[in-house]
Each structure stands twice: as C-alpha cells, then as structure tokens.
Deep mutational scan, measured.
Amino acid sequence: KELVSALYDYQEKSPREVTMKKGDILTLLNSTNKDWWKVEVNGRQGFVPAAYVKKL
C-alpha cells in the first residue's frame, strides 16, 4: 500500500473529508482525482486536498 505524509494541518469541512495534522502518515487509497485524494487516517476514510500531502 502507498503512504503519504501530511504537509499541513487540514480540518475537514464535510463528512466526506478527514482531518489530518502536519506530519501525519496516511494510507493513500485513491489518487485518480488531481485535486482530492482519498486516504485513511486513524481508521477513517475520506478525502484531503492533494496539494496538502506528498507521496513517501
């Protein structure tokens, strides 16, 4: 599985998104959309802005 690192804090703005803190390591589930990537963090799945994470 592919991992990404959070470059910035992000506070979810809808139920489809997830909150992350800078430095968090997230499991990348889907990166086909260039703007929003689906990740899993702390057992929750949702979307984060692609520009806020980088692949490890």
Rank of each mutant, 00 (worst) to 15 (best):
Q45G: 06
L26M: 14
V48A: 03
S31R: 09
N42R: 11
E17C: 07
V53P: 02
G23L: 03
G43Y: 04
Q45R: 11
V39P: 00
L26S: 02
S5T: 15
V4F: 12
L7F: 04
K54C: 15
V53W: 01
K22G: 05
L3I: 10
F47Q: 03
N30D: 15
L56R: 05
W37E: 01
T32S: 14
K13N: 10
V53C: 14
W37L: 05
K1F: 14
L26A: 10
W37S: 03
L26C: 11
L28H: 01
E2L: 13
V53G: 01
K38T: 08
K34L: 10
S5V: 15
Y10F: 07
N33F: 08
P49D: 03
G43H: 06
K54V: 15
Q11S: 12
K34W: 07
E40A: 08
E17P: 04
Y8A: 11
G23S: 04
P49R: 03
A50H: 03
V39C: 04
V39M: 01
K38C: 14
R44V: 10
R16S: 13
A6C: 13
Q11H: 14
V39R: 00
E12L: 07
L28K: 01
M20I: 15
A6R: 00
D24W: 09
T19F: 04
G23H: 06
Q11P: 06
Y8T: 09
E12D: 05
P15M: 10
V39E: 00
V48N: 00
K38E: 15
L29D: 01
E2N: 12
S5R: 15
A50R: 09
K22Q: 11
E40R: 06
P49G: 01
E17F: 06
W37A: 05
K54D: 11
W37N: 01
Y52V: 09
L3F: 14
S31Y: 08
A51S: 14
P49N: 03
L29K: 04
K13T: 13
D9H: 05
G46T: 02
N42M: 08
N42P: 05
S31N: 09
E17L: 06
A6D: 01
T32F: 10
K22P: 03
T32D: 15
K55D: 07
K34V: 11
R16V: 11
G46K: 02
L56E: 09
T19D: 04
E17H: 07
E12V: 06
G43D: 07
W37Y: 08
K34S: 12
K21M: 10
T19M: 04
K13C: 13
D9A: 07
E2R: 13
G46Q: 02
P15C: 11
N30G: 07
W37R: 01
A51V: 10
G23T: 02
Y10N: 01
T19N: 06
D24F: 04
D35S: 11
R44D: 03
V18I: 15
K34N: 12
F47L: 09
E12T: 09
V48C: 02
